[in-house]
Design a protein around this nucleic acid. Sequence first.
DNA 1: GCCAACGTTGGC
DNA 2: GCCAACGTTGGC
Length: 140
Amino acid sequence: MRYWLFKSEPSTWSWDDQVAKGETGEEWDGVRNYQARNFMREMAVGDRGFFYHSQKEKAVVGIVEVIAEAHPDSTTDDDRWECVDIKAVRPFTRPVTLDEIKADPRLGEMVLLRNSRLSVQPVNGREWQIVCEMGETEAG
DNA sequence: GCCAACGTTGGC
DNA sequence: GCCAACGTTGGC
């Protein structure tokens, strides 16, 4: 199983919106960036991801699960763009802020810090574990 | 609200 | 195929 991070501006699509979709989940549409799309093509059903609120909040707020592999993005006719479907698994007990991530030297290589504009990105197993601990959330 | 970083587009 | 111009994102 691999780990990922999905970035969203809460005013557009928030954790609460994601939770409201329940087990049905929702497609992660609107991505118009090749790197982000390529990562979604690599995803498998059952992979887990962090849900990150960008802009004002700047914090990881919960865990999601990939429930459908990459398929055409229904919001465009342009067949270059694909997306996966994800569902909310559980919220963090405590959101983990960007500042906290920056402050932890063990997380210095996170793509979140290295490439701040990338909206879909991989997270390695160690980073996953550490951030889950910081959020006081079981990593499973 | 500004600006740096980055990705994309289009002219050559 | 290069590169300048432009648009967008996201942190500050």
